[in-house]
Design a protein around this nucleic acid. Sequence first.
DNA 1: CCTAGACGTGTCACATTCGACATGTCAACA
DNA 2: TGTTGACATGTCGAATGTGACACGTCTAGG
Lengths: 182, 182
Amino acid sequence: MSLRHALLGLIAELDGASGYDLLKVFEISLGTVWQATQSQLYGELGKLTDTGLIEVSAEGPRGRKEYAITDAGQAELRHWLVETEPKPHRRDEVMLRVFFLDQIGPEEALGYMDRMIDALSGRLDELARLEEIVPWEEEGGLTGNGRLTMEYGKRFMAMRRDWFVWARKQYEERRSGAGTGG
Amino acid sequence: MSLRHALLGLIAELDGASGYDLLKVFEISLGTVWQATQSQLYGELGKLTDTGLIEVSAEGPRGRKEYAITDAGQAELRHWLVETEPKPHRRDEVMLRVFFLDQIGPEEALGYMDRMIDALSGRLDELARLEEIVPWEEEGGLTGNGRLTMEYGKRFMAMRRDWFVWARKQYEERRSGAGTGG
DNA sequence: CCTAGACGTGTCACATTCGACATGTCAACA
DNA sequence: TGTTGACATGTCGAATGTGACACGTCTAGG
């Protein structure tokens, strides 16, 4: 269960963040690699506080609670980072559909691939635009890792787009091959 | 919820498959894009049968049940494939850790990246070996899509490995830059 | 005959996740 | 003064997923 560790890491980096702040980070910055809903987040903050891995370091207006990581939390974060191995948890709906593309007509299958190629190209454009806007040299915050993640995002989208272009070509070749041959 | 549709698609392609057979497919062939545990799978087969999307087409030795897709199931599968859009559900523990690599010492951070590079290289070797062994020209089954998935797996692993190599270099440059500069 | 191992189905308790709902505060502006 | 919208925290039920357990059958080989 990594939401716990995502929160722990975030609180360690962003000192004095509230649940609301953290939610924004999940939406914007961390969202590429890990997602969390609001109810999940507040629930987990409660559990982490109960377990003593984080603590409420200050309270602000509107019931705002600012969190800080405790020594126990730091130890747990470190343990997770250096002593446990990540297990890839593969679950990809886009690729799952590709698996069953035989089940629908060729027009629709090609349509699906075209839509995916368009969507991925769009995402790549967005990323390129975003990269120009973001103030990379700014102090504090996650921009160091943000840059790495941004590059990963770009490579990932490009790889997928290129694969779809290739798969589409394969599909058409198989199709025309079966048509003229046999 | 895509497990339902993964099963539906599989039963449509592999006629007369049992739960046990399907489990093998998840372990070997489909595992790259979608995972399922045994308890999940049998549970879902029961639900699909109750809903009338699949039916038990034959019973074999050892209580074996063979499943077939019904017209309603075919319609549902088709609906899912052509009329709904996949929502990417990003959750990647390996990349999540990268986000928090600042939290540990440089030796350990570089160690993590090296381990990832090794692991990915290993996976790529495995895939190359597997590709030579698999009888691609065989009739029936998933080899058509298997080939697409195989290529995707190769590109995905290679992309990640290359990214880690790049990120490692970035990390070292930032480190020595901060050390000699400033 | 016995037994190991593949084949085969199923349940149960627990944890995690999701989406919707409920509640309230503070600042800005008409 | 009223109201809009960002800030802010929380609960609840239902769906999903995980790992362990429980049970029974058929085949090959010692």
